[in-house]
Simulated assay, not measured.
Amino acid sequence: TESEKQAGTVEFLLLGLSEDPDLQPTIFGLFLFMYLVTLVGNLLIILAIISDSHLHTPMYFFLSNLSFSDMCFISTTVPKMLVNIQRHSKSISYAGCLAQVCFVLVFAGIENSLLAAMAYDRYVAICHPLRYTVIMNPRLCVLLILLSLTISITYALFQSLMLLRLSFCTNLEIPHFFCEIGQVIKLACSDNLINNMLVYVMTSLLGGLPLLGILFSYVKIVSSVLKMPSSGRKSKAFFTCGSHLLVVSLFYGTGLGVYVSSAVTDLTKKSAIASVMYSVVPPMLNPFIYSLRNKDMKEALKKLIQMSSL
């Protein structure tokens, strides 16, 4: 078949962030550092949550899943880039590119859903504190994770299968450091209108609905907090939401920026640099945001470090 024939012959070229050979060692060092910091930071968050029984709550259950998703997300894109820089190569196979598209969509989708689940958790904790343990029971938490996994994997497989119907001829240069679905579709020499429409419609739905859920949760949270008589309770409520709001702003702000700029303009180099902002920077910063702003997390990390040193 056409797709089998392409799998053996087609190779894409990942142009990365710069084609200047003098800059490659700097880019390699910077991305290796960011990758290692992301892995270590998120792994510490997961281990701290597992080892401390005080953190066995829905909020930290979602946070540990977010950390795991962040580790997988960055591992889908950065290692291939580092290997290519080391080998002085830019190529990625047809199958490798499709796999990268699929995994990026899976983990971006999971991140979306987890941020919405965490917003709902904060909403229940602040607006319905007396019913919190009843509503946010372990069964619901596991169901939310399974639902997010199912939706993300189904969407990613569907988009990847839709890519198989496209044929690719010459000029297979992707001006990114990974196979980003929009850039891959642009390279097709067959009709790609259906693919483009599906990407924009499905991304708007699967990105927009969780975002609307997050906004709705925070509207309810703010109105509930403003009704609180005690200023101490108000500041505590806002503080517990601060870390999550920072992560949401970082992920959606950068993601929407790339999404809108790619739809409006064709400044591919700028969008390649912007894509670093949503695919590499949030996974690296999330552990710092949650651990530095959270007293319980700091205590758990201290205990973990003491245990490991003993």
Rank of each mutant, 00 (worst) to 15 (best):
T150L: 15
T150K: 10
I151F: 12
I151H: 09
S152Q: 00
S152D: 03
I153Y: 12
I153S: 01
I153P: 02
I153W: 01
I153G: 02
T154W: 11
T154L: 13
Y155Q: 14
Y155M: 07
Y155E: 12
Y155D: 11
A156I: 10
A156V: 06
A156H: 06
L157D: 06
L157K: 05
L157V: 15
L157H: 13
F158K: 08
F158A: 12
F158M: 13
Q159N: 10
S160K: 12
S160Q: 09
L161C: 10
L161Y: 14
L161V: 10
L161P: 01
L161F: 15
L161M: 12
M162P: 01
M162G: 08
M162V: 05
M162R: 13
M162F: 14
M162E: 14
L163E: 05
L163N: 05
L164Q: 14
L164S: 12
L164Y: 11
R165S: 15
R165P: 00
R165D: 15
R165G: 13
L166D: 04
L166T: 07
L166I: 08
L166P: 04
L166Y: 10
S167P: 03
S167R: 13
F168D: 12
F168C: 06
F168M: 09
C169I: 04
C169R: 04
T170F: 08
T170A: 13
T170P: 01
N171K: 11
N171I: 07
L172A: 05
L172T: 06
L172V: 07
L172Q: 05
L172S: 07
L172I: 06
L172H: 09
L172Y: 09
E173C: 14
E173N: 15
I174S: 08
I174K: 05
I174R: 09
P175Q: 06
P175R: 05
P175S: 04
H176W: 08
H176V: 00
H176R: 12
H176P: 00
H176F: 15
F177Y: 15
F177C: 03
F178T: 02
F178S: 04
F178H: 05
F178G: 07
C179V: 02
C179D: 03
C179M: 02
C179A: 13
C179F: 06
E180Y: 07
E180Q: 11
E180G: 03
I181F: 02
I181D: 08
G182V: 02
G182Y: 06
G182A: 10
G182F: 09
Q183D: 11
V184W: 06
V184H: 03
I185Q: 03
I185A: 01
I185S: 02
I185T: 07
K186R: 11
L187Y: 02
A188N: 05
A188I: 01
C189A: 00
C189Q: 02
C189V: 03
S190I: 03
S190N: 01
D191I: 01
D191Y: 03
D191V: 02
N192T: 03
N192S: 14
L193P: 00
L193G: 04
L193A: 10
I194E: 13
I194S: 11
N195I: 00
N195H: 04
N195F: 00
N196P: 01
N196Y: 10
N196F: 14
N196Q: 11
N196G: 13
N196H: 14
M197V: 04
L198G: 00
L198V: 08
V199A: 02
V199C: 05
V199R: 07
Y200K: 09
V201A: 11
V201C: 00
V201S: 03
V201T: 00
M202V: 14
